[in-house]
C-alpha cells in the first residue's frame, strides 16, 4: 500500500475509534459494546429454548450464525453510515474531498473501529455460549488455515458491501438507514443466519445461495462446529471455500467500480456537501 493510503487508513481508523468511544469512560464503553449483541443472541436462544427444540446441532448452528451476524450488521452499515455522519452531522465530508485522502481507503479505515468493537463482542458472546449455553466448539478439529482464510474473505466481502452502500449513500438523501436496514434484514433472513435455508420457500433458498455471506457462515460453521447448514451438505469444504473466494473477489471488484462511479456522479451533481437531515 503506498504511504499516503497507509496514513489515510491509519488516521481514519483512529478517528473512527474516537468517534465511537470517546463519549464515555472505557469500562462503560466496553459494557455498552457487549450488552446489545449478547441480548440479541439471548433473544433467539430463548426462542429455541421456549419451544424445547431438542436438536443440539440446530441450536449451535443458530447460535454461531447469530453471533457472526454482528459482523454482517456492524461492518457494512458502519462504513456506509460514515458518509451520512461526515456529510450531514459533522459536515466535514467536503473537507475530506479537498484533502489528499483517498475516500475509498478512508472508508475502509473508518470500518476498523467497527470491526474491533464487533470482534470483542463476538469473542465474549462465543465464550458465553461455550461456558453457559453448552455450545461445543470442536477445538481439536479446527482447521486454522481454513478458518482464517474464510474469515478474511468474509470480512472483505462485508467491507465491499459497505463501500457499495457508502457509494449509494453519497447520492441519496435520508435513505441511508433504510438501505442499511434492508440489506441487514435480507441477509438475516436469506443467508441462513438463525435457521437452515431449506426452511425458506424455494425462491428464498435460491436467493440465499447466491449471497456470498451464506458461504462465509457455512465455512465458519464447518471450521468451528465441524458441521454446517444441512442444505449445503452436498458441497465439500473446498467447494464452499471456492465459491466464497470467487464471489468475494467479484464483489470486491464490483465495489471498487461502483464506488468510483457513484463518487464521480456525486461530485458532478455537486451533492458532496448536501445536508438533508432536516
Amino acid at each position: 500500500m503506498p504511504m499516503r493510503e497507509f496514513w489515510t487508513f491509519r488516521h481514519a481508523a483512529w478517528l473512527g475509534w474516537q468517534t465511537e468511544s470517546n463519549w464515555t469512560d472505557p469500562l462503560l464503553f466496553a459494557t455498552y459494546s457487549v450488552i446489545r449483541p449478547i441480548t440479541t443472541t439471548l433473544m433467539v436462544v430463548l426462542m429455541y429454548w421456549f419451544v424445547g427444540s431438542k436438536e443440539t446441532s440446530l441450536f449451535e448452528l443458530m447460535f454461531l450464525g447469530n453471533t457472526l451476524y454482528m459482523y454482517i450488521f456492524n461492518v457494512p452499515f458502519g462504513i456506509s453510515y460514515v458518509i451520512m455522519e461526515d456529510r450531514e452531522h459533522y459536515k466535514v465530508l467536503k473537507y475530506l474531498y479537498i484533502s489528499p485522502a483517498n475516500i475509498y481507503v478512508y472508508l475502509m479505515g473508518r470500518g476498523v473501529s467497527k470491526f474491533v468493537i464487533t470482534t470483542v463482542a463476538v469473542a465474549i458472546t462465543l465464550a458465553f455460549g461455550v461456558l453457559f449455553l453448552g455450545v461445543h466448539i470442536a477445538l481439536g478439529t479446527i482447521n486454522p488455515l481454513f478458518l482464517a482464510a474464510s474469515f478474511v474473505l468474509g470480512l472483505t466481502g462485508l467491507i465491499a458491501f459497505g463501500t457499495i452502500m457508502a457509494g449509494i449513500s453519497l447520492l441519496v438523501a435520508r435513505h441511508n438507514f433504510y438501505i442499511g436496514e434492508s440489506l441487514a434484514g435480507i441477509f438475516y433472513l436469506f443467508c441462513g443466519v438463525v435457521f437452515p435455508i431449506s426452511v425458506l420457500p424455494w425462491w428464498g433458498e435460491a436467493l440465499g445461495k447466491v449471497i456470498p455471506i451464506t458461504y462465509w457462515l457455512e465455512a465458519t460453521r464447518r471450521s468451528l462446529l465441524g458441521f454446517g447448514d444441512p442444505t449445503l451438505a452436498q458441497l465439500t469444504d473446498m467447494e464452499v471455500f471456492g465459491i466464497l473466494a470467487f464471489s468475494t473477489l467479484l464483489l470486491l471488484a464490483l465495489s471498487v467500480v461502483l464506488f468510483r462511479a457513484y463518487n464521480h456522479v456525486a461530485r458532478a451533481r455537486g451533492v458532496i456537501d448536501m445536508t438533508t437531515w432536516y
Partner: peptide, 28 residues
C-alpha cells in the same frame, strides 16, 4: 412527503418478523 418511505416502512419490519417466523417454523 417521500413515497419510498411508505414502502420501506411497510416491508422492512416484515424482514425481521419473517426471520423469527421461520425459527418457529423450523422448530415447532
Amino acid at each position: 412527503r417521500e413515497l419510498s418511505w411508505v414502502f420501506f416502512d411497510t416491508f422492512l419490519p416484515l424482514l425481521g418478523v419473517a426471520a423469527f417466523v421461520y425459527i418457529y417454523k423450523a422448530t415447532t
